[in-house]
Design a protein around this nucleic acid. Sequence first.
DNA 1: CCTCCTCTTGAGCGATCAGTCAACTCATAT
DNA 2: ATATGAGTTGACTGATCGCTCAAGAGGAGG
Lengths: 232, 232
Amino acid sequence: MATRSMKLPRHPKPRTGARPAPAQGQPSPDTRARILNTAFQLFHEQGYHATGIATILREAGVHPGSMYHFFPSKDALLVGVLEHALELLRPAVMDPAERRTGDPIGRVFELLEQYREGMHAWGCKMGCPIGNLALEVADDNAVARNLVHRNFENWSLAVQKWLDEAGGRLPRGTDRAQLSRFVLTVMEGGIMQARAAGNLAPFDDSVAQLRAYFDALEKLAKSEQERRKARK
Amino acid sequence: MATRSMKLPRHPKPRTGARPAPAQGQPSPDTRARILNTAFQLFHEQGYHATGIATILREAGVHPGSMYHFFPSKDALLVGVLEHALELLRPAVMDPAERRTGDPIGRVFELLEQYREGMHAWGCKMGCPIGNLALEVADDNAVARNLVHRNFENWSLAVQKWLDEAGGRLPRGTDRAQLSRFVLTVMEGGIMQARAAGNLAPFDDSVAQLRAYFDALEKLAKSEQERRKARK
DNA sequence: CCTCCTCTTGAGCGATCAGTCAACTCATAT
DNA sequence: ATATGAGTTGACTGATCGCTCAAGAGGAGG
């Protein structure tokens, strides 16, 4: 039973003000990407709930209907942003850290140094875009929560790969997956405290402790190896 | 030049619906506390921006004018909540951990265990109320940011006191202030990942790594002491 | 009794919120 | 040439946002 005649024109006025026709209706192929980039940036700067759709639209130069064509809701936009972040993670975060040094354990701390530089550049504001969303939306959007989780997983998986490459420099039996997650823990916890403090000291302190932990692990691995050598 | 006659009655109607006079106008001395408790809980459950004033008022059974009598703005309410949290921290968090064990280093891990139990009870939701606010409001409310910072400081200061009590069990020259902040780092980072994962594994992993670090430190301190003893 | 003063009441404000929709453009397919 | 459908336009909606304020309640001090 189709409800015909339900829809009647809501804009019966033909067009009162003549307008210079600013390139109407032509699809710009990067609209979706522009929305995604703008939303990602604004969510990072202001948080999810504090960012209104109107702001995203203004900054991206997009009209509401256009955005809702690609993302049927604000939550869907959030999901899109997190998927976008998932794709961005390797080229924008892990690859630069790898380019800094070939030393596998060195890469872990270059990665942290990268975040430090980001924090410094923004005056200890904003922090980690994924971490922020983790705490803000994890409870009420299951899909988004899972995507945050996958972002974290990919992050620590990349770190784990470096740890695996470090081979004998870590003690035998080291749970490298657990250790890689621990690196993420230290990064996020350090950034949180640095934001609250308004300076990088808590972050630097956290990294220093992690460094001490790694030094202890490497030392332990060394003495392990020497003991093995001596037994021969 | 006083603008007299500016104000005219906005509610000229005397009272249309007779109502059973539910104790009107009488000041209940705990109104402020009720607002604070309700707001603290709602900010914890939903976040700051996601919580509307109307919800706080409804849950606390308070009228807007009453709330704005004590807190002139939502931001001021946030500041009040964070001051409230500052007072709550010792009796509600640190004291219970101290009651669990007398062992100073054991207390550190009992504290973490407490947070673990909280997370478990809430199904890995909500997380740390202060940590959540740290990431959500640190950038745009300087007073709130500083109060978050002071909450963190008090937390790690209490941990530091325990570490100081541990005395010789930690290596000489250990930066106990830095180490205490590192414990907070691990707690917050672990909780963040547990929320994203929807289970406690990442938190447990983080604590396990911290435990390994402490074990290494204690072992180092022991060998230090034995070396000193042998030199005698 | 009256005057303060703190606190409460609750309708109401303008602004903004996320979201809607009929009309439109235009490249492509037929 | 016509039809199709993806993408765009922008005025619009109802709900909710944080917040206001004149009026009143009731205790304290005179």
